[in-house]
Each structure stands twice: as C-alpha cells, then as structure tokens.
Nucleic acid binder design. Structure first.
Lengths: 196, 196
DNA sequence: TAAGAAAAATACTGACCTGTATAAAAAAAT
DNA sequence: ATTTTTTTATACAGGTCAGTATTTTTCTTA
C-alpha cells in the first residue's frame, strides 16, 4: 500500500502568494540561496501549508520557472506590440527593451532563466526543459520576425540574435552597467542590414 | 588583544593540491554546491590543514577564480599563438577555440567566470572584481587585435565580440549542443568584414 | 637523535537545510 | 449548528554546512 502525500491542486489566493513570493526571492537571490523557511516567512504562511500545495521545493522551482517564462514572454510581446509597427522593428526593440529593463531596476539580476541554467548545472534537471523551451521560443520569434521582414537566412540570423540577447544580458549583469546593451542595439541593427 | 588565526603562506604541494581539487570541483559543480568537506575528502587532506592555508572558504574561492583566470588566459594565448598567423585570425580562432573546447568535454560547463558571476549574485562580493578583470582583459584582447588589424571602430567591435563570446558560451551551455558556436564563428567573420 | 613544526584524525559547535508529525485553531461546507 | 476541510503553530528528524578544538602522528630540521 503506497502511502502518497495528498497535494492540494486548487488555485487559492494562498497558493498564488506562495508562488509570487518564491518567484521574487528566487529571482532576486538565486534558487539555491533561498530556503523554504524564508519563503514561508515572507509569504506569512505555515510551512505545512506550502507542502500541502507542493510536494517538494523542486516542484515549486518548476512552477516558478514555468510561470515566469509565460509571464516574461507575455510582458515581452505586450511591450513590443506597443512600440513596434513591424516585425523588423520588433527585433531592434527587443534589445531596447532589455536596456529599459536595466535602467528601471535598482539591482539588475539579468535573466532568471539564464541564471537558473547556470545554477542548476546538472542537465538532467527537469528545469532545463523549461529553460530550453523559453530560449527556443525566443529564437523562434526572431526567426519569424526576420522571415516576415523578408530578411535573408532568417534561421541563421535568429541564432545570432539569440547569442546577442544572451551575451548582452550576461555582460550587463557582470558589468552592472548598460554599455553592453547599447552596443547590442547597434549590433542588432547592423545584423539586420547584413541580412537585408 | 585580538586573537588572529595564523595562516600558513608557504606554497607546498599540499596547498597546490587543495587549490587544484577545489578548482575542479567548483568548476564542475558550482561554488555553492561544493562543500569544504568534499574538497578535503577528494584532496585527501585533513580539514584543519585546509584551514591552516586558507582563512575561509571565500578565500579559497578567491584563489580559485584568480588562478583560474590566469590559467585560462594563458592557455587561451598559447593556443591562439599556435594556430594564428595574425591578430585578425586570433579573433576568429577565439570562437573556434570555444567550439573545440566543447567538443573535447564530456559534460560542458561553459565558462567558470560567467557561472560564478551569476551564482554569486551580490555585486559587492570581491569575486566580482576578478570576474570583471577577466572580462575586460578578454575585451582588451579583441580591441587590440582589431586595432592592429586596421579594423574600424576597434573598441565598439570589441564589445560586440565580447557579447558574442558570452552569448555563445551561455547558449551552448543551455543547449548542450555546439550549434550556437558554429553560428558564432560565422558571425565573428561577418563582424570583421563589417569593420574592415 | 632530539626538538619543533606540519599534518592527520576525531569529535564537536551552532547554524541552516528539506521535509514531516501532531495537535490546535480557523474557516468552509453541509 | 455540526461536520469536514484548511491553515496554523510548534516541535522535530536527519542531513549538511562552515569552522574550531584537541590530541596524536608524521615529517623536517637542527
């Protein structure tokens, strides 16, 4: 007789508060650096309540990554739709968006998915699937935007742009200064010209 | 009367074995994921011996980063000198070097300094100074190589190349597949043409 | 060979970690 | 109003963490 733990699958305000608090703490401090005790303290709930919604910390981490990836992409597209008149503009605006995000943050923490990928070094960790999916979603955006704009070699360009996206994010995080993003914006424009 | 701990500053084989073991474990598993007990076990020394050479784990981490940065740059230049006939070739060969490193590794772990920077999120950590120095050293190489090759806007090009370097490293680490590095090599060649 | 220094072995501290057991209090549903 | 579910509070288990104290053994050097 297997004695399984019963997990509450309902979507209550408490559950949302757990995920929101974990999301904020994981992103600001890193996943390994945040203990369950800190999450329950800041969410002002009992530890047992957390473990009634999530089987383990790893489960909570998975939900953090999945929900954050969805939210990131949604904010991303919402913003791009507001400032872009064409798919070609969306490409350049992607990097302007990164720079605005840096300027609007007091302590820049880069990209939560890149951080998670380097932190959870074991590639067999299921979190890597979410991160890979996020990255390929982003690259796919670049590819279709490039294709719709009539640019040559859209697929190769999309890889270059993803490289540029990741590189500019990491460089900015290391330097804590927006200069790499300025160069990334210029480089994105040049890449578009190269593929026109 | 301040009671300080006496640190052995001699450079003995044991000390080197500690640093070598820590270097391997930190790079393969991440800094936070490796405990002092694991280091002393794999180096087959007593824990007290480690603490007679290093005041704290943070001290050992600093030495790991400093020594690794020196060793990385030395290997880098040694290899580039063997395969390059000009500074312009050094630029492209940098990215070929990354790809060869990936192909020669069983479990690619990317760049130890990028990993450390994302792992040690607090920018006030003295480790960030070492990482910044490493990055600027690398960018400086790009800049002087570009300048010596008569390329235009050497400084801006160097930032683009550093972005490309970091981005390709991170993308490869996430994907665990060398395709981003292939695109990075092509992109580096294009960037050189753009600045000719 | 004797004295001194280095290293090892062992046990420990106090803090933190994930996860659980249990019982009381609060809330919801019947 | 009573039962059932949810949440809390508290304590705890078993592990790991960085770092230290103490004693014994080994090595070096004089």
């Amino acid at each position: 007789m297997s004695k399984k733990k019963k997990i509450n699958t309902r979507n209550t305000p408490i559950r949302e508060r757990i995920v929101e608090t974990a999301t904020r703490l994981f992103f600001e401090n890193g996943i390994q650096a945040v203990g369950v005790d800190k999450i329950v303290a800041e969410a002002r709930i009992a530890k047992m309540t957390l473990y009634s919604y999530f089987a383990s910390k790893d489960d909570l981490v998975m939900e953090y990554l999945e929900k954050s990836a969805d939210a990131w992409l949604e904010n991303f597209h919402t913003h791009l739709n507001q400032v872009s008149k064409s798919d070609e503009e969306r490409i350049v605006n992607t990097f302007i968006y990164l720079k605005e995000n840096f300027n609007n943050s007091t302590a820049y923490r880069g990209n939560g998915f890149i951080n998670a990928a380097t932190e959870l070094s074991d590639g067999r960790n299921p979190a890597h699937g979410v991160i890979l999916n996020y990255q390929d979603n982003l690259r796919g955006c670049f590819e279709s935007w490039a294709y719709n704009s009539g640019l040559k070699d859209a697929r190769e360009l999309s890889y270059a742009l993803l490289n540029l996206f990741n590189g500019a994010t990491v460089s900015t995080q290391i330097e804590d200064f927006p200069e790499p993003l300025t160069h990334a914006i210029n480089l994105a424009k040049k890449l578009i010209e190269l593929h026109r």
